[in-house]
C-alpha cells in the first residue's frame, strides 16, 4: 500500500501516532503552494494548520480508489489557500492589483522556493507553450480565477478556458499519461 494512503487509513481509524509522520511527509510539499498563493507567512501558517487539522478530522473521507494521497492533500491545501486569498481580496476590495507582481516574483521571504516556476527549465510547466504556461501559472501559482486571468491577459474568457484545458492535458502527457 502507498505509505501516504496507509497513514491516512490509520488516521481515519483514530490512530494519533499516524499524524506526525503524515505531516512530515506532506507539509513540505504543500507549504510552498500555500505560501505562493496567500503570499504571507502568517496566513500561510494558519492555512496549513487548518488544512492538516481538517485532514486529521476528515481522514475517513479519503477514498484511495478515487485518487492519490498527494492529489487529496494538494487539492485541499490549494482550495483553502484560494479561499483565504479571495476572502482577503473581497474584504480589501482590491481585486487583481495586489497580485500583479505575484507571478513573476517569489513569495515573501524568498528562500528555496524563490526560483520562479518558469525559470526552472527542467519542469514540465516550463516546457509548455507560452500561452498555456501563462494561464496555468496564473491559476495554479497565483490563484486567479478564469475571469481575472482573462482581464489580466486581455483575452476572451473562452480562450483562457481552452488554454487551461490544453495546458493541463499536455502536462498530463508529460507526466506519463493516466495516473
Amino acid at each position: 500500500m502507498d505509505p501516504g494512503a496507509d497513514l491516512i487509513r490509520r488516521m481515519a481509524a483514530g490512530d494519533r501516532q499516524a499524524f506526525a509522520p503524515f505531516y512530515d511527509r506532506f507539509a513540505p510539499l504543500v507549504y510552498p503552494l500555500v505560501l505562493r498563493i496567500v503570499r504571507d507567512r502568517q496566513d500561510a501558517a494558519d492555512v496549513l494548520q487548518d488544512v492538516f487539522w481538517e485532514v486529521w478530522q476528515g481522514a475517513h473521507t479519503y477514498d484511495p480508489a478515487r485518487g492519490s494521497p498527494e492529489a487529496w492533500i494538494v487539492m485541499r491545501a490549494r482550495s483553502r489557500a484560494i479561499d483565504r486569498v479571495r476572502a482577503v481580496r473581497r474584504r480589501s476590495e482590491t481585486f487583481v492589483a495586489p497580485l500583479d507582481d505575484s507571478v513573476a516574483q517569489a513569495p515573501a521571504g524568498g528562500g528555496a522556493d524563490a526560483a520562479s516556476l518558469a525559470a526552472d527549465r527542467e519542469t514540465a510547466l516550463a516546457r509548455l507553450p507560452e500561452p498555456q504556461r501563462e494561464v496555468i501559472e496564473l491559476a495554479y501559482a497565483a490563484g486567479l480565477t478564469q475571469t481575472e486571468i482573462a482581464e489580466r491577459l486581455k483575452q476572451p474568457l473562452g480562450t483562457v478556458k481552452s488554454r487551461i484545458r490544453l495546458g493541463l492535458e499536455r502536462l498530463r502527457e508529460a507526466f506519463g499519461g493516466a495516473p
Partner: peptide
Amino acid sequence: EETIARLAAEGPRRTPPPEVR
C-alpha cells in the same frame, strides 16, 4: 487533480515554520 499534484511534486519543498507542527 493528479496532474496538479504532479505539478506540486516537481515544485520546491519547504519545511513550514515549526510552530505549525
